[in-house]
Amino acid sequence: MSGDILIRADGLSVGFQIGKGMFNKQILKAVDGVTVEIEKGSFFGLVGESGSGKTTLGRALLKAVPITGGHARYDDGEVQYDLAELGGTELKDYRKRAQLIFQDPYAALSPRMTVRDIIAEPLEVMGLTSSRAETDEKVREIAAKCRLNLEHLRRFPHAFSGGQRQRISIARALVSDPKFVVADESVAALDVSIQADVLNLLKELQRDLGLTFMFISHDLSVVAHTCDHVAVMYLGRLVETAPTRTLFNAPKHPYTKALFSAIPSLDPDDRGKTQKLEGEIPSPTNQPSGCKFHTRCPHAVDRCKVEEPSLQHAEAEGHEVACHRWQELFEPA
């Protein structure tokens, strides 16, 4: 890996205004001061429960929702953009450099367009090709990489299974030759036997095309197998980030630990061994004070209720954790 940083977010926040009228205006902070670096050519995983803000963070980095605080820089070696300020022609240019693969391949494809037209649409909309022949050439090229054949291109999406549809979505996202791709729960709707196939394809494309992926998922075992680096979010904050292996071998944050322990084990004799997390993720409009996790944390003390922990460097390279007590809790005695 080159070690260059493709995206650097610094205190990035996304807030949505909810409620109408002058007096009950409220800001819902979906992403709250996230600082994160995504290395060029990496497969960056983002995990968390629903409501943790992972999708919003992904969209903010694509400039698909307005950034309301902080900064995010994009630098692919050719161009540099400040994502918070981005607009006009620069934004148009960024659109072809950063793409999104959706979760549901059934909803993402228009039933009235042929597969060829679906894949070609981004090229036509962004005016990236000058002739139909050139468009066809590009479509065929990316389709082949996504294991779709010429016969497939003439058909309509309804004729395809979930796995094939997801391959069509991937081809559509990659046809404009992007550098940065956000895959939002892209295998969540697929069956297990197909899921592995799509994950292998994404990895292969990342290597061959030199892409940088942000892989958003709630499935930790999928993330463990595909990503190089993982960030864990809770209520809009980053609570822990580390290289995959470090994180899975030695999680430092109580939330990460609880998440791992909640994955149902394949061993029937492991029943009852999981460490249960009580309660549910609080509503983002009514966030707890101090450490946002303290309402569910089995290790919370008084300090956690008042003071919000910031990300601190843990022992391993690239491992950061936001917890007041990580040292005493998970350090070998």
Binding site: V192, L199, N200, D219, L220, S221, I263
Partner: peptide
């Protein structure tokens, strides 16, 4: 199925 106890195991669809 991706397994957590062996991260190196390839995923075999």
């Amino acid at each position: 199925l991706p397994k957590l106890d062996d991260l190196d195991a390839p995923l075999t669809p």
